[in-house]
Design a protein around this nucleic acid. Structure first.
Length: 272
DNA sequence: CTGTTTACCTGGGGGC
DNA sequence: TGCCCCCAGGTAAACA
């Protein structure tokens, strides 16, 4: 499940590997993931190069040399990989991008086919973020806007952290990791949180995500970065998938519940 | 407007 | 061995 730290890790890898390489061919095997169409994607990419990559939350913006930008979202099992040009692809590979005079290619793999690739004008990236009602990036958000957003919401804080219109980038893993570090019960509603609890959550958001970026993300099931490596933050998880294990703080047994339909892990003693 | 539920997909695991 | 069912979760769309 690529969340902000995993997407950031992928972008850092891609920037080192494929920036400014001229694209000579694009092969598309699964068309429904592309907006507006596979034909337009091919036309847009051939003869162009990727000159910059930005991130907002879990969205990647790959800007091209021709004033166009690919908005790529990996959803749950998407992978952007740089592999040897002659490497055989498997049935989960949906796009191949071939570069001029280069022994590597960029491929898109996605077991569950939820990922999307959308072509927009580079000048309308801001507009795209607004139209999709994305909140501030989780590494950028300031305390006052965070606090006022949380106070308005009549739903569990866990669901609020997952809401990309509130703040962008947090998914199921890091929502639980932030809440156990902040000692806040995931089912407690936003408007019922005390200032010191909102402060405690805010204080954990950026350091938790930054720590995960340093470890190159969490690899629980499918996530690997652009050179096929797993992350290492799964070795530092305190809540996610830790049911039955002792809490890092008080040694109580971590419990698993459902919040808004999502598996949620927490310490029944520290998070009340 | 708000918040909740469902659809989109596939693979893995449990029950039998 | 194999079939059925459920589960995993990010987002958009449908719904209440």
């Amino acid at each position: 499940m690529p969340e902000l730290p995993e997407v950031e890790t992928i972008i850092r890898g891609l920037k080192q590997q494929i920036l400014n390489l001229i694209i000579v061919d694009v092969k598309i095997y699964y068309k429904p993931m592309i907006k507006p169409s596979a034909i337009i994607l091919r036309k847009t990419l051939v003869a162009a190069s990727i000159i910059n990559i930005l991130r907002h939350g879990k969205y990647m913006f790959l800007s091209l040399s021709n004033q166009m930008t690919l908005v790529w979202h990996l959803r749950m099992t998407g992978q952007l990989l740089v592999v040897e040009k002659n490497k055989a692809i498997d049935k989960h590979t949906h796009i191949e991008i071939i570069f001029k005079d280069h022994d590597k290619k960029l491929i898109y793999r996605d077991i569950r086919k939820f990922g999307t690739c959308e072509i927009i004008k580079t000048s309308s990236i801001k507009e795209y973020i607004e139209n999709h009602h994305l909140g501030q990036d989780s590494l950028e958000i300031d305390y006052n806007s965070f606090k006022s957003l949380i106070k308005k919401k009549k739903k569990p804080i866990k669901s609020i952290l997952l809401d990309q219109t509130v703040l962008a980038g947090i998914g199921n893993i890091y929502a639980d990791e932030i809440l156990i570090r902040a000692s806040v019960f995931p089912l407690k509603h936003g408007y019922k949180l005390k200032d010191n609890e909102i402060q405690a959550i805010f204080k954990e958001i950026k350091p938790t995500l930054q720590a995960a970026i340093i470890k190159k993300g969490t690899s629980f099931s499918d996530y690997i970065n652009s050179i096929g490596q797993k992350g290492k933050f799964q070795l530092h998880l305190r809540a996610y998938q830790q049911q039955g294990k002792p809490c890092f703080r008080c040694k109580s047994i971590i419990k698993k519940i459902k919040v808004g339909g999502r598996g949620t892990y927490y310490c029944p003693n520290c998070q009340k």
